[in-house]
Design a protein around this nucleic acid. Structure first.
Lengths: 343, 343
DNA sequence: GCTATTCGTGCAATCGATTGCACTTAGGCC
DNA sequence: GGCCTAAGTGCAATCGATTGCACGAATAGC
């Protein structure tokens, strides 16, 4: 007997029912706050005690099968090791957990096929909804989901064309603040190290950059990168510094990683930041203040974006919000040591 | 009809069976590689085609209920925003995904109650096993699991007293290498900024530190910290530098975060690293090379530790390994700019 | 040519919880 | 005191897939 209980941890509703001398239905109703009222107080109390004594724990899988709710939501991100995502995930978690939901996080590495596979796997697991932070999702899958009525919220990226709710930071305002700051420092020739153009953030930031430069009569060149990575940023600046003369005095990077790549390139080319070239990042990811030099960047409220995305998703699932809301969270320019007056 | 299919994405085994004019059992067998042989080739082929045409996707929840396997494993970590954990999680994922498993990651923030709640929630979700990276788990819960036969693997921490398989880095060797390096640089008075003593890593590292110092006849003082955090590290060094004279010429931190805290404290006290004080971290977390100065630290193979932990867990689940294996992965000292010859 | 296998498939139970419906028992009402 | 209503439980179906068992047909063996 002891052996049996050691092997088979499972105590089911039926076990509790038998012990209490009632039907499993009554146990179910007693243990569910929403239906507890249907059971006589005295009975409910007794059942709860027995359930506790027996160490009953509900089987969420069985419940989910019946109720068609898994209380699980899928979170699709490119790469957890990119420091902006952990805060988003934790923000999501912080909203979900107290409400009985759990998150299942998957990494796509920006690969569309992997993404399709992972999303399918999440759907097979009957997730109640999806929070998607990947850029490469113009295609088939998400639009299919929209048709099928799958609940999706975008975070940090917008869905191109598909009217899903989305939570983003105010990238336009961020870029404008950066340009304003650089102009005040006397910069007139600025390079934009743009993020991938198939991500909404990359696109919006570079568009804003161009229009701001035009508006202010600045020389604003844009270089596109494949990925938001240190390597891409470094390679892009390397390419410029290796051949021909540098004309820009400041670099506006699409994100902090690209900016860090710029740091590396400048250093290997004997250029000092900010003395020779000013560099500005975007996101204010962890540790940017500890870089050499401390990085001037735009703070995006990633944790809050996660919270907001989770909130939007649950209200969609509960059928409260049906309109595809777009939430834009404010950003702020963080002045540190990587920008200086133009020579 | 179109509306119905739009609303109810679900195509079940029964739907496929009806379309194919066979019993659901036959469809099930056809679609499962392991049982496909039981079905006539021709029939299986036809069924597969119909399943594909109808867009059938298996319901993992229903399957799990019947087979008592969720193909999901729980990953318990303190805090995803601590940069050492994302690589571990990705390592776990990389091993799990190709084998049909998914990971469900939860953050405990080092809080024991939260941990209990989250682990219970994971168990209710019928996870097939647990990978645990939290330190505060001496107690009740995990030992209960051991009795109940729940599959658990520890990663980055060892379970105190409970014989679960564990994957760790060779912290002892790492500390020894650090001391060796500092001795070569002429340091004889070294401070150890130790991690929490209720974590196996914190304990092992500080023990090794003390024994190495004794063995080599060095002055080695140890200061304990509550958490592996920047703030704790900074506060600890602040406390020393604020009152009284500093005697040490080098700091060996329990991890990179504590080391970074030391950086901050030294800077605010007008001390230069490494000129006045050498600092060594532990873990080689991302971006340590970009700190000012670039941090000398010990590289721990976090990604590989994740892979190994997942491997151990699955082999336990499959009943292959039953002995509680301890795997220790090698580390290496990464010399950068935060250590210099003692004055 | 007749029994003994083997093969292919269907039937029905099962996993654990939820829930619509029916039934019993009380209590309220006139 | 008889009838009606409501409260409290039980019964049984259900969610979707898996699987032991049984049955009929086809093949093999002698």
């Amino acid at each position: 007997m002891a052996y049996r209980s050691a092997m088979r941890n499972r105590v089911t509703l039926a076990d509790v029912a038998k012990a209490a001398g009632v039907n499993a239905a009554t146990v179910s109703r007693s243990l569910n706050p929403a239906t507890e009222g249907q059971v006589r107080k005295e009975t409910a109390r007794k059942i709860k005690k027995i359930a506790k004594d027996l160490g009953y724990t509900p089987n969420t899988v069985a419940r989910g099968l019946r109720t068609r709710k898994s209380l699980t939501i899928g979170v699709v991100i490119p790469d957890l090791t990119n420091p902006i995502f952990p805060p988003i995930v934790r923000g999501i978690d912080s909203y979900l957990l107290p409400r009985g939901y759990s998150a299942m996080v998957v990494n796509t590495d920006g690969n569309k096929e992997i993404e399709q596979t992972l999303i399918s796997s999440l759907m097979e697991r009957q997730v109640d909804g999806l929070i998607v932070a990947t850029g490469h999702t113009e295609g088939d899958l998400l639009s299919q989901f929209h048709e099928r009525g799958v609940k999706v919220v975008m975070v940090n990226r917008e869905s191109p064309g598909i009217p899903f709710p989305a939570v983003t930071s105010d990238d336009g305002a961020g870029i404008s603040a950066i340009i304003e700051h650089l102009v005040e420092l006397g910069h007139t020739n600025i390079l934009h190290l743009a993020g991938p153009s198939d991500s909404s953030t990359g696109l919006l930031r570079s568009k804003t950059f161009s229009s701001e430069c035009k508006k202010r009569g600045l020389v604003g060149k844009v270089i596109k990168n494949e990925n938001y990575s240190i390597d891409d940023g470094q390679a892009a600046i390397d390419k410029i510094l290796d051949h021909g003369a540098r004309t820009f005095t400041a670099i506006v990077a699409g994100n902090d990683l690209l900016a860090l790549g710029a740091y590396h390139s400048l250093r290997t080319h004997g250029l000092r930041c900010p003395d020779d070239v000013s560099v500005v990042g975007f996101n204010n990811m962890p540790f940017t203040a500890d870089f050499q030099p401390p990085m001037t960047t735009v703070n995006a409220p990633h944790y809050d974006m996660g919270v907001e995305a989770a909130r939007l998703l649950l209200s969609q699932i509960d059928g409260i919000d049906s309109a595809p809301v777009k939430v834009t969270l404010p950003v702020s320019l963080i002045l540190r040591g990587s920008t200086a007056r133009a020579l």
